[in-house]
Amino acid sequence: MTRRHLALLLIDLQEIFVRPPPAVVEAAGELPGIHAVLERTVRLRERARDRGVPVLYTRHVFRPGLVDAPLAARDALRARALERGRPTAEIVAELAPSEEEAVVEKNRHDGFFGTDLAARLRELGVRRLVVAGVVTNLCVETTVRSAVQRDLDVTVAADCTSAPPQAHARSLAAMADAFAVVADSPSLLLGHS
Rank of each mutant, 00 (worst) to 15 (best):
L13M: 14
Q14I: 01
V134T: 08
D12F: 02
L190G: 11
E39P: 00
L188M: 14
E26A: 09
L95M: 04
F62R: 00
L6T: 08
R122H: 01
V126N: 02
R120W: 01
R170E: 14
F62V: 01
L121N: 00
A81P: 03
L95S: 06
H35F: 03
A7D: 00
A163K: 09
A28I: 06
A169L: 04
A174F: 11
D153I: 15
A48Q: 03
D50P: 02
R43C: 02
T2M: 09
E99H: 01
Q14N: 01
S193E: 13
A89Q: 06
P21V: 15
A176P: 10
R120P: 02
E94L: 03
E94D: 11
T41G: 05
C139P: 02
D75A: 10
L95I: 04
T2A: 09
A79N: 02
A158W: 03
E46N: 14
I34V: 15
R122S: 03
S162H: 02
N107L: 02
L95Q: 07
E46K: 11
R150A: 13
T41S: 14
C139M: 03
V92I: 08
E99T: 04
D75Q: 09
R86V: 04
E26G: 06
R51I: 08
G33M: 12
A28W: 05
E94S: 06
A132L: 09
T2F: 07
Q149F: 13
A27D: 02
T58V: 07
R51G: 14
D12Q: 07
L138N: 09
L129F: 06
R51T: 09
P64N: 04
G52T: 04
F179Y: 13
R63D: 13
L95C: 06
G111R: 02
R170V: 13
P164G: 13
A167T: 05
V25R: 12
P165C: 11
S162C: 07
A76F: 09
A93L: 11
S187R: 14
G111P: 08
